[in-house]
Nucleic acid binder design. Structure first.
Lengths: 147, 147
DNA sequence: ACCTGATGACTAAGTTGGTGAGTGATATTA
DNA sequence: TAATATCACTCACCAACTTAGTCATCAGGT
């Protein structure tokens, strides 16, 4: 019986990568659950913490319809995590801005991970850093090739 | 305004990791869509391609209730991707077995990625492999620390 | 051999978060 | 200025989940 999803014929690296992807995949679910949010709401907060944007942009970032995005913003606004603001120039637009409370919510939940990642990263020499980056970029490209 | 989700104060490695995680996160959605499956159905096929299991085990693997898992198996069975078989010893149990068609479905969709990953992996020397693995394990641990 | 409690699969009903289609206001282009 | 596009939003509907059970079967203790 041919193994179709090859359980990594002995490559420790790819095995570690598979584990990473699995854990990373569960992460949003888990963090969202802890925060009492849906995964879409959490991802929305992540995106909005980089910069404000309108519901339609948010929809594109989340990969959902603008109808769904409208609901996401509603729920986040209801919890005080974001605010709707009129766009100064274009009166069709609404800017969705993350509040300090929203920012704090995301921060609190993710801080331990960022610390751990920073430590792992700091342990690398410049030469090692280059090796790791090349591998990660290559793996990313391999995954992108499916889309 | 303090950046809370630090956009990687200049670490190319963590930047690459972030991109990897983002792409890997979209992957299931995208692949499932192409295959005409829900993400749960796709993940179920992945798990079942390693070994058969009952609906309850599947539920645990997917992180859903057994009620939901029952529906997943229904839908996969309806499409001929899996079969329900009576457990030889325990008559309470059902074994859900992936069919060749199901196996092929997953294989076809993921093959290009595995090839790309294998190429990326093959480019590593043993010493480099060790560096990469250490980084991946460290990053995985950092993510696990949130749960 | 016989209860008792645990386990596995499943069903029914309700909830949630999504889609598709369409509206009204505003902006942009011909 | 008329036609077209874009933005935010609403409504009706749907898929996939949950909770709360049912029923059959198994395993352990008496």
């Amino acid at each position: 019986m041919a193994r179709v999803v090859p359980s990594w014929e002995g490559s420790s690296t790819l095995d570690a990568l598979q584990e990473l992807v699995e854990v990373a995949g569960r992460l949003p679910q888990e963090v969202a659950r802890q925060a009492g949010l849906s995964t879409s709401e959490l991802h929305a907060l992540r995106h909005l913490s980089s910069s404000p944007m309108g519901p339609v942009d948010l929809a594109r970032a989340l990969g959902v319809t603008s109808a769904a995005s409208s609901g996401v913003v509603d729920r986040l606004a209801g919890r005080g995590h974001v605010e709707r603001r009129p766009h100064p120039q274009d009166r069709r637009r609404t800017e969705v801005v993350i509040t300090d409370a929203g920012r704090l919510e995301v921060a609190r939940r993710l801080a331990p991970m960022f610390e751990g990642l920073a430590r792992t990263d700091a342990a690398l020499s410049p030469a090692e850093r280059e090796v790791v980056e090349r591998f990660l970029r290559g793996a990313t490209a391999a995954m992108r090739s499916l889309t």
